[in-house]
């Protein structure tokens, strides 16, 4: 090395220049709870089980989503619709339980594509939040089904 290189001072000054440039740079941080990152329109977030225009659940428990799921995150049990439940379930067969394990789910959206009744969707504005217990990651119908419009406006 030459003498000027061995003194390291020019190199140190260069390094200081780089760090001071970063000092004044715009920060990449997003202060999460206050602001969220701009998401894509086709962002695949938390699942929702849709209701139709009358407020009846669209899901008919055909099981195509569970078959399509590459992570095998979806389980369900089917049941027959009783008399007088027509306003609750659209088809004669409905899902008594419907569970998505959010620890298994890879949010690929194949369930959405497989669904013939357009019942399951991945929302673009909600995430599966962090929880303390593993059990809490298994989302049942209570947390998946879209709330009724009437309860929402209340």
């Amino acid at each position: 090395m030459t003498l000027s290189e061995r003194m390291y001072l020019p190199a140190i000054a260069q390094g200081l220049g780089i760090t001071i440039k970063h000092f004044f740079k715009k920060k990449a941080t997003i202060n999460y709870p206050e602001e969220t990152r701009q998401r894509s329109d086709i962002w695949r977030g938390l699942h929702v089980l849709k209701r139709d225009e009358n407020g009846a659940e669209r899901c008919t428990a055909c099981g195509l989503c569970a078959v399509a799921c590459p992570a095998e995150a979806i389980t369900m049990t089917a049941g027959e619709r009783k008399k007088g439940e027509e306003h609750l379930y659209r088809e004669e067969k409905y899902a008594v339980t419907y569970e998505v394990n959010m620890l298994r789910c890879i949010f690929c959206g194949l369930c959405e594509e497989a669904c013939p009744k357009a019942a399951i969707f991945l929302q673009d504005d909600k995430l599966a939040p962090a929880r303390y217990e593993r059990d809490e990651f298994i989302y049942g119908k209570d947390r998946l089904v879209e709330p009724l419009k009437t309860t929402e406006t209340k």
Partner: peptide, 13 residues
């Protein structure tokens, strides 16, 4: 704060 700024973060806030 300075460490954060140099590393393109915002630091304690």
């Amino acid at each position: 704060k300075i460490a954060a700024f140099i590393q393109d973060r915002v630091g304690p806030n």
